[in-house]
């Protein structure tokens, strides 16, 4: 009767090995995604190297759902550049164009005014009460590249969280059940 016990043992070890391989695979996928993201952060020097356009204020240049690649270099900000900025005390970054720059002689500190191409007014109405200018620390990066439509995936996932769980569940199931 020894061979039955042997077979059971060997089957068990195969399953264990397979389960371990699946876990390692899953870990590999997660860590490589993280590596790409952090690598992009290092290369571009920007906290968030990729942003999704959420509003139509830059139409017809950028539509809702387009993706922008950001770069944060040491070069000073100039008029005409499209920058992503964060107003103090607010979470959602804004993508608009710079229309005025005053750069200090002594400190190099810049006073920046922005406006959305599709808006009639400049952004002073969006800034905090009494704030007339953006300064360097508000700027998160400037847009250097552009990819249309791809951002719709994230917009849909943030607006319908169910989709997100379905997608993550399906991917997880696929990874766990796949055998090669």
């Amino acid at each position: 009767m020894g061979w039955i016990a042997d077979t059971v043992d060997s089957v068990k070890s195969i399953q264990l090995r397979q389960a371990l391989i699946q876990i390692v695979n899953l870990g590999l996928i997660v860590s490589s995604a993280l590596m790409i993201w952090k690598g992009l952060m290092c290369i571009t020097g920007s906290e968030s190297p990729v942003v999704v356009v959420l509003s139509g204020s830059m139409e017809p240049g950028f539509k809702r759902g387009d993706i922008l690649f950001l770069h944060m270099s040491k070069d000073p900000i100039r008029t005409g550049e499209i920058v992503v900025f964060n107003i103090d005390g607010r979470d959602i970054p804004i993508v608009h164009r710079v229309i005025k720059v005053h750069e200090r002689q002594d400190t190099g500190e810049a006073y920046i005014l922005t406006k959305g191409d599709n808006n009639d007014m400049d952004d002073r109405v969006l800034y905090n009460h009494g704030q007339n200018w953006l300064q360097n620390h508000h700027i998160m990066g400037r847009a250097v590249g552009f990819l249309p439509y791809v951002g719709w995936v994230t917009i849909m996932m943030t607006e319908k969280p169910v989709l997100k769980y379905i997608l993550i569940g399906a991917l997880g199931l696929l990874v766990i059940t796949s055998k090669d």
Binding site: P60, T79, K100, V101, E103, G108
Partner: peptide, 14 residues
């Protein structure tokens, strides 16, 4: 004297 650069957009178009 105060600012090394002043850039003021006067007109723009698409």
């Amino acid at each position: 004297p105060k600012n090394s650069l002043n850039q003021i957009s006067l007109w723009d178009g698409i």
